[in-house]
């Protein structure tokens, strides 16, 4: 039963007030994309033991989607941030690096996005 702070309304929301939206920072591939691109967009999901970026909706609250960076093993939350970004904000990356110096993997399906 996680608690995640909604970056829009500042409520420290209980997991029961949230709806999960799975992996964050996916890039949409529409008409004209290759089968590989579409497969990556539609089906290829990371399942890391460790740092992970997720989508959550404050469903029983302000109704806004936000993104969360957390550790799937220890459930440590590195931060939450608004969804209107294509990559994690610098301060979140910094926080993760401070807490997980060994962290390398990116947030996109193809592993891109490593900093």
């Amino acid at each position: 039963m996680l608690t995640l702070e909604c970056p829009y309304c500042g409520v420290k929301a209980d997991e029961t007030e949230l709806a999960p939206g799975y992996e964050a920072h996916l890039k949409r591939f529409g008409p004209g994309s290759s089968p590989e691109e579409f497969e990556a967009y539609m089906f290829a999901r990371k399942n890391p033991k460790g740092v992970h970026f997720e989508r959550w909706r404050h469903a029983y609250g302000c109704g806004k989607w936000f993104l969360a960076a957390r550790c799937t093993a220890t459930l440590e939350v590195f931060g939450t941030y608004p969804a209107q970004v294509s990559e994690p904000p610098a301060d979140i990356i910094k926080k993760i690096q401070a807490r997980r110096p060994e962290w390398k993997s990116g947030w996109q399906p193809d592993g891109k996005g490593t900093k």
Partner: peptide
């Protein structure tokens, strides 16, 4: 409604 908001908030903001 959630589906609409998802696209409006997360893709075509």
């Amino acid at each position: 409604h959630g589906w609409m908001e998802d696209w409006l908030q997360c893709e075509w903001w």
